[in-house]
Design a protein around this nucleic acid. Structure first.
Lengths: 230, 230
DNA sequence: TTTTATTTGTGTCAATAATACACAATCTTT
DNA sequence: AAAGATTGTGTATTATTGACACAAATAAAA
């Protein structure tokens, strides 16, 4: 069937974002396999004959982080003829937003995984640098309009933590008072009654997401970030 | 190379949008080839061994419309295991916004192409209905924030025409005065000095895009459509 | 030729939202 | 108890949105 049509190799590559409280980070691997052994790349793998793309992306993320139920989005499919010098290979990029404190560090280490902030990021193989740039642009775009930033934070978090995350994403300072008002006006946060015990000065209120409202309102426009900053 | 990895068929399907002045339309084909001969589907084709995805999408669009330099975007890659009952096949969907009066009608007819408005759209093969829905959602989303609607209009157009287009996209009436103010405030339109000769009452001003500003500001947020309507 | 019906272009006002900015409360360290 | 740092909230000004009304242009009808 489909005689005369050619078949292609198809890979998936994951752009894995995390936030350590100060900087936005990227989980990369130093390849201990061919091709491009010894160089840095995104975590990836080939799509299997009996696996959907969604399942494949989850499998590949899980192989490095041990995580399941992670926020992932398909970003773009790369199909340049020369993108992989070994053989014509398509790659579908997925981005994943994970809580950096929850992943399996031992597993990541065993796969030569390492977290990088953007100013330390090494050059990557093939077109993986483009994939990262595109994923970063997508994160900036989408986080300005929709509440997906929460996916990078622990279940309980403070407004100052959330603000630091947004400042890391946009690499720009935000007005504390306006930011707080904007976030609270979405009505997505629930006061847990607890306070952040790690603070060295005034302890901040710990909030959690109102999951029902979060899911209902996810696709509505929120304008979290001032127009000029995005 | 990449021994042991499986290769897959890879197709491209195009969701082709046009606007006839009243309704948003979709260009579909009645298949005179297998599989699913005689049924309606999106225009598609297989990715060739020596062709990038971008080139493939342009080729496939051109085969049906005769057009080049069309606004296209990669939307999503579909990779469910059972999506094509003949063989495991990925499909990358692209959407195209064309000026409906410019395409090669003779060519489209020879390929069994036909324009449908959304209320007359037939059921489509495979997962093409999902592709259309997703593309439509993307058009609604993006047209609310960025000036891509112009791609569906002739080079010279009036503000009432543009409003009709937006009303067709969102299937909702818009306030004429607020819409006009919003569009003119973007500073993207240039008064050509001409008037629309086809009008039966007061003739409307024909504008064209300020191409330089259009390209510069394309990715900025515009909020063309009231929040609640999208 | 005048009237009528329709469409286009623009203006105004009130409500809402965004921006810039200041002060009081809390907590740890000295 | 005082100092230093951080958090939570309020307010005045400005800009934008949303609801609405009127005047000008045009072709068809009277």
């Amino acid at each position: 069937m489909y005689q005369g049509e050619s078949k292609l190799f198809v890979a998936i590559d994951c752009i894995i974002f995390g936030f350590d409280g100060e900087n936005l980070k990227l989980l990369l691997i130093k390849r201990n396999f061919e091709p491009e052994l010894g160089k840095w790349s995104l975590m990836g793998g080939f799509v299997k004959e009996n696996e959907s793309l969604e399942d494949g992306s989850k499998r590949i993320l899980n192989e490095l982080t041990g995580l399941e139920n992670v926020y992932m989005e398909q970003i773009e499919t790369y199909g340049g003829i020369e993108r992989d010098p070994m053989a014509r290979t398509l790659s579908i990029s997925y981005f994943a937003l994970i809580n950096i404190h929850e992943h399996d560090e031992e597993l990541a280490r065993s796969k030569n995984g390492k977290w990088f902030s953007f100013d330390e990021k090494p050059g990557l193989i093939f077109d993986h640098n483009h994939m990262v740039e595109k994923a970063m642009a997508h994160l900036r775009y989408k986080a300005a309009l929709h509440p997906l930033g929460f996916e990078l934070l622990p279940e309980k978090f403070t407004i100052p933590q959330l603000q630091k995350l947004y400042e890391a994403i946009y690499d720009k300072p935000l007005d504390r008072r306006n930011f707080s008002r904007k976030i609270l006006s979405t009505d997505l946060l629930v006061d847990t009654g607890e306070k952040n015990e790690t603070g060295t000065t005034k302890k901040a209120i710990l909030y959690k997401l109102d999951k029902e409202k979060y899911e209902q309102q996810f696709n509505a426009f929120h304008y979290f970030i001032p127009k000029g900053l995005v």
